[in-house]
Every structure is written in C-alpha cells, then in structure tokens.
Write a protein that binds this DNA or RNA. Structure first.
Length: 482
RNA sequence: GGUCCCGUCGUCUAGUGGUCCAGGACGUCUGGUUCUCAUCCAGAAAAUCAAGGGUUCGACUCCCUUCGGGAUCACCA
C-alpha cells in the first residue's frame, strides 16, 4: 500500500521542538515505504495569528533537520496548492455538498449570544454543546456567514494506531463551525477536505485532538470519505511539572538549537526517541537507521519528558561519530562558532585546533569559550598559578626556575611536533624530578591561563614554537618583577 | 462538571503470564587512563512495577475499583 503522510503546521511563529516530532514520524513512515510520499502543507487559515516569515522559518527548520518534503511549498506537486488560503474554492465546494444534503446550515446567532450560551453551560458544569441551542430556522448560507455542521451524535468507534480501539460518546459531537465568517474554513473542516483530496493515508497529530475525533468521524461519514489511519502522539512534557511542553515553558525553536551548536543529527535522533524506541538497547540512530527501524506500534502512549541533558549527550556522541567518519566535513560545519579573535586565522590552523578539542565539546557553542587562547595571548594571571593545587607547594622562585628550564629545553627542540614535544616533556619530567601535575600544570597554565585545555603536547604543537616560547617568557618576566 | 487519554529507577525506556528479588541509557556518585577539562573504561546507588482487590499453580504483564496526572469542551490549530 502506498503511504502518503503530511506535516501541516500553521505559520504562527517558529516550530518548537514539541511540534517538530510530529513532522518527523510521518516523514519516517513515508520514507520507509517504497513509493511513499511526504507532503508539507501550510495551514494558514487563521489570519489573526498569521506571522510574517513564519512559513520560511518552518521550511528552514525542516531542511536543517533533514526532512525533505516531496510535495509542498517550493516544490509543487500534483496535489497543490499547498497553502490553505489558496484552496478556498475547494472548501466551499465541499461545504455546499453538505448544505445540499442538509448536513450544514448558516448560523445566524451573533457570537455574543453564543458566548452567553457557553457561560451558561459552564455555570451548570456541563460541556458546551452548540447543538443544544440549534436555531429552528436558519437563513440560506452565503459567503460572510459562519457555516455550521449539523451533528449526528451517536456512539462512534475507530482504531487508533497508537491508542488502540477508541470509543467516542455522543456528547463529544457538536455542530462545529465549518466555514468562518471570513470565508475561510476552520482546521476542523479544512484538514479533512485536504487530507481527502491529497490522498493522505496516515494522519499524525498530537493527542490533544483525540477529544475531537467524534466530530471528525461524523464529518468523514457525512462527506462520504474513507477515513485515513490515525496516529495520535502523546505529549512531550515540559522539563518540570506535568504540563505539555509549550512556548511559554521556554520551548525553544528548533533552529535556536542550531545557533547553540546542536547538530541536526542529534536533534533528529533525540526527538525521534522521545516516545518511541525500537526495543533494542541502541541509543544512537542516524536518519537512515530511523527510517529502517521506525514502526507505529512502538510509539509510546504516555507523555515523554523533554530532557535537554540527553540531547546534549547525544550531541557529543554525534560530534565524535561524525569526526571519525570525516573530520574535515565536520570541521566545515563549525563556521560561525569560533571566538571573534579567530577571524584572522586560516582553516588549516583552526582545523588543527578542532582536531584536538573536538572530543571535549558538548556543542559547537563550546568552541567560543574553550579556544580563545589559541588566537590571542591570554593575560598573565599570577594568582591562577600560585593558587593551583599542585603549584602552591612550590615557592615562586622554584616555579620560576622550573619555567626557565622548560623554556630552555623546548627552545632547543629541532622538530616542533606533537611526538617530539611529548618526548621532550617526558625528558624534562625526569630531569627536574617533578610530578606531571606540577610541571605540566605549570606549562599548561602559563601558556593558556585557561581552566582546561587539550593534552599539553597537542596544545603546544598547535600553538607553535614562537607563541609557546613567547608566552612562557612573559610569565618568567612577571616572576622576575615580583 | 462532561468527554477522552495516561501511570515501571530522578528522566527516557525494555518488559505482551514463569528465563524479572525487573534489563539498558541519560543524570548522579566512586575509581582508573603520565597535568587540567573532557573522552574512554570499570563500578555503585537508584523502581515494594501508583494503590487495593480479583483471575491463575504463577501477574509488571489479564479483569475490576480507587487514587494520581494530563488533554479537551473557540468563527485557534
């Protein structure tokens, strides 16, 4: 069977990570099907909430994380147009079918009156049902009037791919608005028409739509349309509390993570595994792994808490994995993440630095704080030396002498390579009879004045002879001054 | 209030009647890897399987009840 899925966001702002997952699963399902198709549809029927540029942001996010759509904006396809505002005639046409069948009517009730009804219902501690107030006489519908569905409340049943066999009671079904006064359809109506005309086989959406299923089922029936398969996804929960993750909990845009230096591979991996797993003990999945292994029946029913620590861990895993595969390619992706002072340096030099620091990066964002001493001389901070746990056992004189010996020995070095430096450093250890913590710590700090850095011989080899010796001498000078 | 959903370590989860006095991963803690930080490796703590009743020789797994949590009841999606 051909699988056609869709992601149908509304352009009301950025896509936060809670929503992005419902773009990923339909993609995976479509891609694991030989002739599967994945459609991007923009649900822009709410003009009040429309945000300029949001569509571009959505496309940008999807491209970043690697969800390429087969049909949709910028791509075209046989089921277009892909913006709902460009599909008005289709909705009107379908709505008229319902009117003809007596299943839809123009609603003459002013919205203030409806609001009053609603208050009344809530005062009586009842669910609000407009059909309890259905007017006996209604005008003939024309554009500019809200059009309502005429419900046929009864017990309805369907099978949900995630939640199993479901029952919707009659009191879940109401006379919902089909077409708004502005002439545009509501989501409730539009998505059914669109999915039917686009040949969608599986609907993926958040479980907040579950209570509306009674209405949708009634609509499929009245429209004489075969219902697709339903895949309702459990919520992603905010880091604290039990509420679903939303923008007000600080749910960031997916692309904000790009700016923080999170790899799309890690984000995809993380999101896909929030509420789904393949039953193995694996943790790291590439996009292809996910396509190969994804299955609807292993989607979780309970909400999953959004745990950024796991995302960061996965990012580290991906940095190491991608470096092992192709270091240069990964390096190329670090552009924009280096400290400002790195601007004057060439790629060869930065690649060398990247090669020795990559495996202690959690995100590319760490590059800014971990590498500045490779690009500019750090200011000498004598306190940092004298308060160091290993170094404070020695007097300043002793430290200074040690530094002089080291500088002299390194200065004689003919070949400035990581291997030779390691050899020399070891010799120095034997000659001075110092512990590595003392000698290496002293040199490391003198040259970087950073709380941490890569292995000493690697650091010095990248820094180069001239810079290394100059920085050591600068510290010696400071000792002399005291 | 009506309707609907959910409930295994702090977190993500494995588990579909016996191989589970519950396994893995993140996080936490301890130790190791010639300096720091990280990686990597080894190990530890961490779930009376929400509770109570059944069914069964046997239940985390099936049934019922209770409790707890969440969603929804818009001319928003």
């Amino acid at each position: 069977m051909k699988v056609v899925t869709r992601f149908a966001p509304s352009p009301t702002g950025y896509i936060h990570i809670g929503n992005l997952r419902s773009a990923i699963y339909p993609y995976l399902l479509a891609k694991q099907n030989e002739e599967g198709s994945y459609i991007l549809r923009i649900e822009d029927t709410d003009q009040a909430r429309y945000v300029e540029g949001a569509t571009e942001l959505i496309e940008d996010t999807m491209k970043w994380i690697g969800l390429d759509w087969d049909e949709g904006p910028g791509k075209g396809g046989e089921h277009g147009p892909y913006f709902q505002t460009q599909r008005r005639e289709i909705y009107i046409e379908w709505a008229k079918k319902l009117i003809t069948k007596g299943r839809a009517y123009a609603d003459p009730t002013p919205s203030e009156t409806v609001a009053k009804y609603r208050e009344e219902a809530s005062k009586n501690k009842q669910a609000f049902l407009y059909r309890n107030y259905r007017p006996s006489e209604t005008p003939e519908w024309e554009l500019g009037m809200p059009l309502r569905f005429k419900a046929d409340p009864k017990d309805r049943y369907y099978h949900d791919e995630v939640f199993g066999d479901m029952h919707m009671a009659p009191e879940t079904q109401d006379d919902i608005i089909l077409i708004k006064a502005d002439g545009l359809p509501t989501y409730n109506f539009a998505h059914i028409v669109d999915d039917a005309t686009m040949g969608i086989t599986h609907i993926f959406r958040g479980q907040e739509y579950l209570p509306s299923m009674g209405n949708y089922l009634a609509l499929y029936e009245a429209l004489e349309v075969e219902a697709p398969k339903f895949v309702h996804l459990p919520h992603i929960l905010a880091p604290s509390g039990n509420k679903k993750l939303g923008k007000r909990d600080g749910a960031k845009s997916a692309v904000d993570y790009r700016a923080d230096g999170i790899l799309p591979e890690a984000m995809l991996n993380f999101l896909a595994c929030l509420g789904w797993n393949d039953g193995t003990e694996d943790e790291v999945y590439s996009k292809q792994d996910l396509i190969d292994r994804f299955s609807l029946d292993r989607i979780q029913r309970a909400g999953a808490r959004y745990d950024e620590q796991k995302l960061v861990w996965l990012n580290g895993q991906w940095i190491r994995r991608l470096f092992a595969e192709d270091p240069k390619a990964l390096y190329a992706r670090t552009e924009g993440f280096w400290p400002e002072s790195a601007a004057d340096y060439d790629d060869d030099y930065k690649f060398k630095i990247f090669s020795i620091v990559y495996d202690r990066l959690k995100t590319f964002g760490d590059l800014k704080t971990m590498t500045p001493y490779f690009f500019e001389d750090p200011s000498v901070d004598m306190d940092m030396l004298t308060s160091n746990k290993a170094l404070k056992k020695l007097s300043e004189q002793e430290l200074c002498d040690l530094l002089r010996k080291a500088t002299a020995k390194l200065g004689e070095l003919k070949e400035w390579s990581a291997e030779m430096l390691q050899q020399t450093l070891n010799d120095l250890l034997a000659e001075t009879e110092q512990k590595p913590a003392t000698l290496f710590g002293l040199i490391r700090l003198s040259v970087s004045f950073a709380p941490f850095s890569p292995a000493l011989h690697d650091t010095l080899s990248v820094l180069g002879r001239e810079t290394t010796l100059a920085r050591l001498n600068a510290v010696i000078t400071c000792f002399g001054r005291d």
